[in-house]
Amino acid sequence: MGDTAADPWGPQSWDGPAPEPSRHQVTSQDLVADALLERARRAPSGGWRRGLHRLTGGSVNPGESAGEAREAALLDRIRQPIQGDYRIAFLSLKGGVGKTTTTIGLGSTFASLRGDCVIAVDANPDFGTLAQRVPLQTHSTVRDLIAAESTIRRYSDVRAHTSQAPSRLEVLASEQDPAISEAFSEDDYRRVIDILQVYYNIILTDCGTGIMHSAMNGVLQLANSLVLVSSPAIDGARSAAATLDWLQHHGYGHLVSRTVVVISAARPGSSTIDMTELTNHFLLRCRAVKVVPFDEHLAEGSVVDLDLLRPATRKAFVELAAMVADDFPESAGRHAVAEWR
């Protein structure tokens, strides 16, 4: 009889030495996909690799380039799951350093790259401008949301009070009526978080330029991490360092170690500051430091559209998002419920 092809699904022999007996009780849980499957390479997204892949109908796949692999790794970090909600407070003692712009840029990046709900809250007691950086869809403010608290039953009830950017980032505006004399308080902020934590996975809070106003107590007590924004200038850097000092001496040292410092170039041109020295100073105290370059679109002070940013700026926000997201697994249960009453 002629030779017959071996049946790949038939009995298989093992010619090597028998595996050593293990004390581990083998169960169905040991049959994991990563160990059994030969993973197909991701198709390249550009360059000669994509051309070759398309030319051969996919039969030749050179795989991702090093740059594409780095980008995929960043996206994996950004898309880590969150248990409950994660709250990020944006601080700066000095105005004009790009705090609100950074809030919108990071929030938009998270919203565009993740599938869950992301919202930015304007907690500035002095007529914040966060809502001016997204298309206006409602004149509702934080006070309107608080007033409607007893009637909120579903996500759409909250959505009626927010405006949404093209990135899917939602923004809850601060009070803009100069006739209202009562400042946004700690109690107000806690009530807002009580509502939002039910419907949003990431909550960003754009604080005022001070740290002594009432709402700041609630912001810091409920925050999972901080983003401290500075300019590449002596006065901005000193203000940022002073903020860390204040936090350390007022019972928020645990937040200092979970702070990501953003050095935002609000003006064109290179800085005369030694950026390596400045970065190293903050790295001795904080979790990470990211430099966001000057961008004409951000400098306009109007609605922010990620598609209009320079590639270097867009990349900086993606890297910043990955840095912040590295804390997601560590935050599980840190603020599961806003217990305060």
Rank of each mutant, 00 (worst) to 15 (best):
L52G: 12
R49C: 04
A73G: 13
G63M: 05
G63P: 12
T102S: 15
A89R: 12
D85R: 13
V97L: 07
A69Y: 04
R49W: 09
A72T: 14
T102V: 10
R49T: 03
A72L: 14
S92H: 10
P81Y: 04
L106C: 05
S45F: 05
G105D: 06
A73M: 15
T102Q: 08
L93A: 12
G98M: 03
R50S: 03
S92I: 06
R70P: 00
I82C: 10
S112P: 14
T101V: 09
Q83I: 02
E64V: 02
A72W: 07
V97K: 13
I88G: 02
R114P: 10
S65W: 03
S65N: 06
G84V: 04
A89S: 13
G57S: 15
A69V: 11
Q83D: 08
G67F: 04
G98K: 00
W48P: 01
Q80G: 15
F110H: 00
S45A: 00
R50G: 00
A66H: 10
Y86L: 13
G67V: 15
R87Q: 07
D85C: 08
I104T: 12
L52E: 05
H53A: 15
G67K: 09
H53M: 08
G84Q: 10
R114H: 10
V97Q: 03
Q83C: 08
N61W: 11
G105S: 04
L75Q: 07
I88D: 11
T102L: 01
W48E: 13
A72K: 12
T101Q: 09
S45G: 13
H53C: 11
H53G: 11
R114T: 12
I78A: 10
A89W: 02
I82R: 02
G46A: 07
G57R: 00
G98C: 04
L52R: 09
F90I: 00
R77K: 15
E64K: 08
L55Y: 04
E71G: 05
T56M: 06
E68Y: 05
A111N: 02
G98V: 09
R70V: 14
R87Y: 01
S65D: 08
G95D: 12
P81S: 02
L106Y: 11
L74T: 01
G105W: 07
L106E: 04
G63I: 05
S108C: 02
D76A: 14
G96C: 00
A66G: 09
P62F: 00
V97G: 03
Y86N: 03
L75E: 14
S45I: 05
T101Y: 01
A69L: 01
L113P: 04
S59A: 13
T103N: 02
G51H: 11
S108D: 12
G96A: 06
R50Y: 01
T56S: 15
L91N: 05
T56W: 15
G58A: 06
G58I: 00
S92E: 10
S92R: 00
G105E: 07
L91C: 12
R114I: 06
L75W: 06
S112N: 05
R79W: 00
L91Y: 01
D85F: 13
E68P: 05
R54A: 14
R70E: 15
N61L: 10
R54K: 08
G84N: 12
G47F: 03
S65F: 00
S112V: 05
L74V: 11
E64L: 01
T56E: 07
E64W: 06
S108V: 11
E71C: 08
L113K: 09
Y86T: 13
G63L: 09
G58P: 14
G107H: 03
S108T: 03
P62W: 07
K94I: 06
T109D: 08
S65V: 01
